[in-house]
Design a protein around this nucleic acid. Sequence first.
DNA 1: GTGAAAGCGCTAACAC
DNA 2: GTGTTAGCGCTTTCAC
Lengths: 335, 335
Amino acid sequence: LQPSTISDVAKAAGVSTATVSRVLSGGSHVSDKTRRQVEKAANELGYTGNAMARALRSKHSGIIGMIVPSISNPFFTALVESVEHELHSVGKTLFLCDSQGSVELEAQRLKSLQQSHVDGIIISPCHGIESAVAINAVPLTTPVVQLDQFVLGTATDWVGVDDARAMEMLVAHLAEQGVKSAVFVSSASTNSSTKARLDGFLDVAARYQIEVRPEDIMLGRFSVDWGEEAGSALAQRDHLPDAIVCGADIVAFGIIRAFNVAGIAIPGRVKLTGFDDVSYASIVTPTLTTVRQPTRLLAAEAVRILSHGPRGETNAFAKVAFAPELVVRESTALN
Amino acid sequence: LQPSTISDVAKAAGVSTATVSRVLSGGSHVSDKTRRQVEKAANELGYTGNAMARALRSKHSGIIGMIVPSISNPFFTALVESVEHELHSVGKTLFLCDSQGSVELEAQRLKSLQQSHVDGIIISPCHGIESAVAINAVPLTTPVVQLDQFVLGTATDWVGVDDARAMEMLVAHLAEQGVKSAVFVSSASTNSSTKARLDGFLDVAARYQIEVRPEDIMLGRFSVDWGEEAGSALAQRDHLPDAIVCGADIVAFGIIRAFNVAGIAIPGRVKLTGFDDVSYASIVTPTLTTVRQPTRLLAAEAVRILSHGPRGETNAFAKVAFAPELVVRESTALN
DNA sequence: GTGAAAGCGCTAACAC
DNA sequence: GTGTTAGCGCTTTCAC
């Protein structure tokens, strides 16, 4: 009833445990005959191996830990799927953690990954500043790569998207559609993505002479609920802006919901844009104009970086920004 | 640079490793003085512990493995979140795997969990029949609970929702709205959820004298794409049914998309229902009438069952079916 | 090509 | 209360 061990197999095959180990792990320097004996014995005993014992001894577990702020945000879901897929193709497995947007939980997860001696960590930090302590507490022996957000005052590789470029494309498109004033709705500006997108937005808006007043910058959380809240507030206003630019698709979904209730037509009265191009962006009504993050590429690059193992002291950290892609849909159509 | 071990701490605190172990794990039978010494030493050395060594020795890892067919299906996302939350509250951690709807991948994941010697497995099987071999291959020492779907010919606990009851509520509601004919769109009937829902649907439809012809049962996959495909096919028909009943919300989303394109009004021309009540059900247009699965309760029960540890040979397996809840929204409104 | 032996870091008996 | 000892199941020198 107890799972069989390597020595059970050794005994059954009439060889030493060392030989069994050799056969089972790549198996160089073993005669074909012993190999077959061992494989037969292993099969008959239903030997599966003990990953912990192996990891304890060999110092690597084949496990990559990943921490995201919210698995229910479809952007992160897609990211996780891509990472999982990518890891699988290099024979590694994923240990997924959700920090629920909490710095404390995030620190806890990070520590737990550390204790599990994972071979590397991919983290989408939940806070652009406060996540620093936890991230810096990870020993340098464990390679870490930040995905999406980059935390100030940390020293790790980073993979993300070129936010400035994305806003450039988005705002240029809006200007083309005749937009003269816009509102920006996103998470708190302590989020590095929001910060970069907001900076880019303001910059490009100014260049296109699109009006953005101080009260037109509405910062809350990356959630449908916050979008809905902001949307309701906007619906109360005496006059609406020409466009609403959101820092994430899920925020835009909230706006759609609020405007549905308020009876405000999109894109008729207001144009709307998102960010990420999650799958639901093409399902909601109206379908959402947004900027696509190349999640496959992001994931592949993050995994590639981790595979290089712990880095030397000297070489600089990688900062890889992928080009986003503008996806025009109904929510910014001309009236 | 190397992470410090228990013997480093022992040395620093001037005690034996056994004492350090006692302090660090609950710590009964230690004097306050030594406890403080040990804690001080551990802190100064930044001791974190090695989960693998502990698990190897103590025979339990504190890790629960979970396998779902598709993490991007928001129903499973919600389930995962709930399970994660529930596990966290009992001090366990989650090892999440995505089988991508593939029986082979599922078997592989299951084996990998087994090798990792997880304390228990929560699985939403991807196939109502073919998943059996892999599930039955799990040693009886590892408690397994099936969530959502139940695989024929397996002997484990199960937690899910009362599908028959759900269809009863749904169809009764449709009948009330004057529906006289309906189409059923879901995954392949080898999926036990689809099977139960379809059986229930046909049963109740007959009772309410709602017409369902053989070609009105459209079985594909649990995905938005399949919904869209089925929706397009329906849109071509000479005359539409009064209602479309979907086996999952995401399938209904596909129908919405297809009907949007085809210019068929919901609920004006056709009424539409989903199943699960994922968060997007209240975001799409029209908002979706559906049946809510109590994911919190499902997760809590699954975790509760696992916490009881491996079961005795004698006692029967639990089959816990929670009551669903009808959620009426725009997609079934009277014209 | 194969075996013997020494641990990886930790916990659980068992002494004292 | 605390230390000593013996492994958990595996990999990896180092002999032969």
